[in-house]
Design a protein around this nucleic acid. Structure first.
Lengths: 134, 134
DNA sequence: CGGCTTACTGAGAACCGTTGTCAAAACCAT
DNA sequence: ATGGTTTTGACAACGGTTCTCAGTAAGCCG
């Protein structure tokens, strides 16, 4: 039987607070900083659980996996700030159709797609510009 | 100055023969099987080089990086068979525009996108169906 | 409430893909 | 051929993630 522990709840809550994609390690560090004694392995286990249950999305970047609390049960894509991780959920009906059609055209079945946009958000853009100016 | 060695050529050629996305380790294994004495680290270095020079594309899947020889100098996406790695290069003008527009709408700059479709190719579909039938 | 089963946790070791190190080998302009 | 430098190969090191296992604690049941 599945049990509820404060550890799982802490991870779910911290993930929600993060607002964007974060690594398991970063999440663990921030939980530790706010006084929690949760173990790293437990954070990994909780994140895996959340992902399996559709409460979180994950993506791989530079050799590590990033997680994010996501609206459950909806198919959507992400617009992610490379600098701060801030993420916007986006829908893309036309892209869904394009993907389905393209796969079918080439005889592919069971098609899934990965569609994410990485950029620098307005706020971070600002900071960068300011910094590079004398 | 950059030098040419048989090792780099061997990797380029093996990558071309692979036809789809393959891992560095798999490439190294297949080179070894065909008699080469090339070292794993060299395969990694060659693949990094090819990727930097635009001769290969790479993507991450399940914690490892996969490489593929790609038409240089063209922006394109991939339709990849989950089972055998066979890959079709696809162009997606509408998706490019959608990505650019979406990023701009949310104030994001320096936008890049990841658009890949994973499925099961016709041949593998066939094999799977045949296997599951009595 | 208290006992009991069993899932979950914590700590550290193990794992695995990848990168770094450094002496030896090989490339190539001369 | 020779010398200056890039590359290579073997192996150690690294970093993120998963495994192991003994100890802890949810939550059912009386």
């Amino acid at each position: 039987m599945k049990r509820n522990t404060w550890q799982k709840e802490a991870v779910r809550s911290a993930l929600g607070d993060a607002g964007g994609f974060v690594s398991a390690q970063a999440l663990h560090a921030s939980l530790r900083e706010s006084g929690s004694t949760i173990a790293l392995a437990t954070v990994y286990r909780a994140l895996t659980g959340l992902t399996d249950e559709g409460e979180a999305d994950s993506l791989q970047q530079e050799g590590e996996v990033l997680y994010r609390a996501c609206t459950p049960g909806t198919h959507h894509h992400h617009l992610i700030c490379r600098r701060c991780g801030t993420t916007v959920e986006i829908e893309a009906q036309p892209v869904e159709e394009w993907a389905r059609r393209t796969a079918a055209e080439h005889g592919f079945t069971r098609a899934e797609h990965v569609v994410d946009i990485f950029g620098v958000c307005a706020r971070c853009s600002d900071l960068v510009d300011r910094a590079s100016r004398p």
